[in-house]
């Protein structure tokens, strides 16, 4: 385990005990994520992507191996407010305005009133939602809600961002736009991002590192370091380098499936 790894998993395993017997959601997972990495997790449904993120977040206890976040246990890291978590659904509180939702973590963490206002303004600007502060979540489109939930995760300025298929339910055009914004945000803030997706182009476009997973038991099949530059305009997706990486990911996914059969 190198010391500059923000997230380090060693021989990590998690077995759920269910009525139909044990489910090996994760098995022998070894992974290092360095500061400033943008890591995508891709793999078929049920291969443990969400479970891995939840273990990192301290929402789930591993049953084997070790994991450290910023050199601490996930629980300690959670209490140190090390990460912001973006769930697959926006999960905004309908009784709070957009500004109120973004303020929620700030209230809980005891920021001053003035500081809360300042940060809400800043992060809503970051996700292009100025002017919607007083709207309620149900008055916004799905894409806007998801952006608000990202703003909420950014508000307290954690170093790590854990994102579980944040754009899964959105159409391609909105998704492209949000991908671009997310990359800009990442470049500007230098955060470490762990990002779950089902889309190969999305994974390749966003990531410095792509983790290909395979199911039953959930394990890491391949880790691909992206040769693409950090500066990425949308049309980088038509370059041979991009297609090459996408091809490798696809091969990895296919092999992971064959392995299973």
């Amino acid at each position: 385990m190198t010391s500059d790894a923000v997230i380090a998993a060693r021989d990590l395993g998690l077995t759920f005990q269910t009525n139909d017997g044990p489910v090996h959601a994760l098995k022998d997972v070894n992974l290092q994520i360095a500061r400033g990495d943008f890591v995508s997790f891709i793999g078929p449904s049920g291969c443990g992507k969400t479970t891995f993120l939840r273990v990192v977040a301290g929402l789930e206890e591993p049953t084997a191996g070790q994991i450290t976040v910023n050199g601490m246990s996930p629980d300690e890291a959670r209490r140190a407010r090390a990460y912001g978590y973006v769930f697959q659904a926006a999960g905004l509180f309908p009784w709070r305005t957009i500004a109120g939702n973004v303020k929620l973590p700030l209230e809980i963490m005891g920021f001053t009133r003035a500081e809360q206002e300042k940060r809400v303004k800043k992060v809503l600007q970051l996700v292009d939602l100025e002017g919607f502060e007083r709207k309620f979540p149900w008055q916004l489109s799905g894409g806007m809600q998801q952006r608000a939930s990202i703003a909420r995760a950014l508000a307290f300025d954690a170093d790590i961002l854990l994102m579980d298929e944040p754009f899964g339910a959105l159409d391609e055009i909105v998704r492209d736009h949000l991908n671009e914004q997310l990359l800009k945000l990442w470049a500007r803030t230098g955060k470490t991002i762990a990002f779950v997706t089902h889309s190969i182009p999305e994974a390749v476009y966003l990531s410095t590192k792509i983790v290909v997973m395979s199911p039953r038991p959930g394990r890491i099949h391949d880790v691909i370091e992206s040769p693409l530059p950090r500066e990425r305009p949308l049309d980088i997706r038509d370059t041979p380098e991009f297609l090459e990486v996408a091809h490798r990911v696809r091969e990895g996914l296919r092999a992971g499936h064959a392995y299973e059969g």
Binding site: Y85, F87, F93, I108
Partner: peptide, 12 residues
């Protein structure tokens, strides 16, 4: 919802 409670947990 479970997700809302998980969210609160991530804020400790």
């Amino acid at each position: 919802e479970a997700m809302q409670r998980d969210l609160m947990k991530t804020y400790s």
